[in-house]
Every structure is written in C-alpha cells, then in structure tokens.
Amino acid sequence: MEADTTVKKKIWAFGTKEVVYAAIGAALYAVLTWAFNVWQIPGAGNVGIRPAIVIPMFFGIAFGPIVGFITGFVGNILADMLSGYGFWIWWDLGNGLIGLIPGMFSALIYRYNETKSILLGEASVVLGSAVGMAVASLSELWVSGADMKTVIFANFIPAFLTNIVWGLVLLPILMIAYAAILKRSGR
C-alpha cells in the first residue's frame, strides 16, 4: 500500500495516538540510553555515547515535532533519572530540540524508504543536533559563566559530533524498517 502524498500531514496534531507515541518514545529513549550507559562498546570509545539519540530524531520524523520534542525532552529527564544524573533542564531542552527539528521535516516525508526522504531525514539530523546542542551548550555561558571558546570546544563540538554520527547511520535504518512495518500493516 502506497502512502497518499496528496493528503497534507497535520504535524502539530496532539491527540491520543501522539500522547502514546510520545510516552513510548520517551520511555524507549530513557531505557536505551540507560542500557548503553552501563554497557560501553569497546573499540568505539569516542562514539560510544548515546546511540539512543536516534530515537527522538526518528520519533520526530515519524510522528511530528511535538512527539519528537517530548521524546527528547522527557526521555532525557527519565534517562538522567535512571542513570542517577539528576535534572539538567537546558540539556533536556536541547535533546527536545533534537527531536523537534526532524519533526518539522516530517511534513515533507511520506514514503520513509525513498532516497529523498532519507536525505531529508539526514539533513534534519544535522540541523536538529546543531540547534539542540547549541541551545544546551550556550546555556553554560549563563549557568557556569564559561566563555564562548570553552562552550564551543568543550560542550558543543563533542556533543554535536557524536550525535550526528549516531543519527546519520541509524536513522535511515530505522526509517526503512518503519516503512516495512507500515507496508505490512497496510497503513
């Protein structure tokens, strides 16, 4: 069954399905982050941080910006709670934006396994990570009094790079798998 590209997607809708998708997304992000926190991957130390970051990106692409935002925002709060890291509102907000921006691209994506859709998804990963991590990192200017150089090199670049490495590789795989699920279920 082919997706109907003539029907405009209501990306800002937040009904019952979106409530459940957002809750599932947040819980999934938290569980996977927690699981990979305690289970480091040998030999990939520099990129062995948060493969689960792809979850808010994917939920944004699949279910819209609000679901993407909540998945990242609430998921990061829960992940930090599970890991015992406390509550860091600006980094939670940054993670929310990592899901929200791909969600804005979801209006342009109908068939998840097309090259065009995957390229849009990849672009959203880069843009979302850049904006999300910029907001979170810039908060350190205000919170800790760090200067711009420190914020860029100690906060922004490491977080941005690891996020896009995971996102660029894993998002297309999830999009193709989701396309297969949609086809199988006739949606």
Binding site: V19, A23, L28
Partner: peptide, 17 residues
C-alpha cells in the same frame, strides 16, 4: 495531554526494559 505523557512514559519503562 503533556502531563499524562510524562505519567505514561514512567509506566512504560519497566515494559520496555
């Protein structure tokens, strides 16, 4: 809706884990 999302996500954690 948003508040219930938070509540629901707590409940899903054991299942998803």
């Amino acid at each position: 809706g948003l508040a219930y999302t938070m509540e629901l996500s707590f409940r899903f954690i054991p299942t998803l884990a």
